[in-house]
């Protein structure tokens, strides 16, 4: 299970970090509180969030998360995308609300693990 499989299966748009899409995915964590992610997310997880400011790049990079999935149609500033590309952070956009994004991701991960 890698970011590219996930992105293709769930139709996410890749906004940053296209060169690292073969990175493995080891689970997911959903939260909009940065310290919650710092404390609880594990390396290799994808992070589902509605935060799109620049500091999400630092969190994803420091925690070695496999990708950020921005929910809804949140607009991600070019400055954030540039920082992500520099820090080798992948940002995907789900285009759906957090609940739907989390639900689809959970189902995909369960099916992919068992299949």
């Amino acid at each position: 299970m890698n970011v590219k499989n996930m992105q293709e299966a769930l139709g996410y748009e890749c906004l940053a970090g296209e060169a690292w899409l073969d990175r493995p995915v080891k689970g997911a964590y959903q939260s909009d509180l940065l310290s919650d992610v710092m404390g609880k997310a594990q390396a290799g997880m994808v992070w589902v969030t509605s935060q799109v400011h620049k500091n999400i790049v630092a969190v994803a990079s420091l925690k070695e998360l496999s990708a950020i999935i921005a929910v809804n149609e949140r607009k991600v500033d070019p400055e954030v995308i540039e920082a992500a590309n520099e820090e080798e952070v992948i940002i995907l956009a789900s285009g759906k609300p957090a609940f739907e994004t989390g639900g689809e991701l959970y189902r995909w991960m369960s099916e992919t693990k068992s299949g």
């Binding site: 909009d32 509180l33 940065l34 310290s35 919650d36 710092m38 404390g39 969030t49 935060q51 400011h53 500091n55």
Partner: peptide
Amino acid sequence: QMGFGAGMG
């Protein structure tokens, strides 16, 4: 609102 200040730092 930026997701800081959760009292977890």
